[in-house]
């Protein structure tokens, strides 16, 4: 799986893989939780710019991270959803749980800079 993590000032940007399914869900969950705990992440941004496919296994990962961040008072958002991802968010109701930002404004950490976890 080609997932990348950028961390900066308590914010983590997860560059989501091209396909988010059950096969990659476990690794994504494990790595994200490890980094969230280790670096005291307060803001989590899921960047879907490369993502072309996501099924309900991916939804489970997002909802799980949302719950965990919610317990610690953190924020979660999603960015750069293509039309298919927007449809997946609406069908699953994720758009009501996660703030979706599509604009050019960055939430945190530069696109090109930042560390890779």
């Amino acid at each position: 799986m080609d997932c990348k993590y950028q961390l900066k000032d308590g914010c983590m940007r997860i560059s989501m893989p091209r396909e988010v399914d059950h096969h990659c869900a476990e690794q994504l969950r494990r790595e994200a939780d490890l980094l969230i705990g280790a670096y005291h992440i307060r803001r989590l941004v899921f960047d879907f710019r490369r993502t072309e496919f996501m099924d309900s296994s991916g939804i489970g990962v997002l909802i799980g991270r949302c719950k965990n961040m919610g317990y610690s008072g953190g924020e979660v958002s999603a960015e750069h959803l293509n039309e298919r991802m927007q449809k997946i968010f609406v069908v699953s109701g994720l758009h009501k749980m996660i703030r979706v930002a599509g604009g050019p404004k960055q939430q945190c950490a530069d696109q090109d800079g930042g560390k890779q976890g």
Binding site: R29, D55, S56, I59, G60, I63, S92
Partner: peptide, 11 residues
């Protein structure tokens, strides 16, 4: 416990 969303059939 596996964080299954329960949305498989709904999808």
């Amino acid at each position: 416990e596996m964080e299954r969303s329960g949305m498989g059939f709904a999808f």
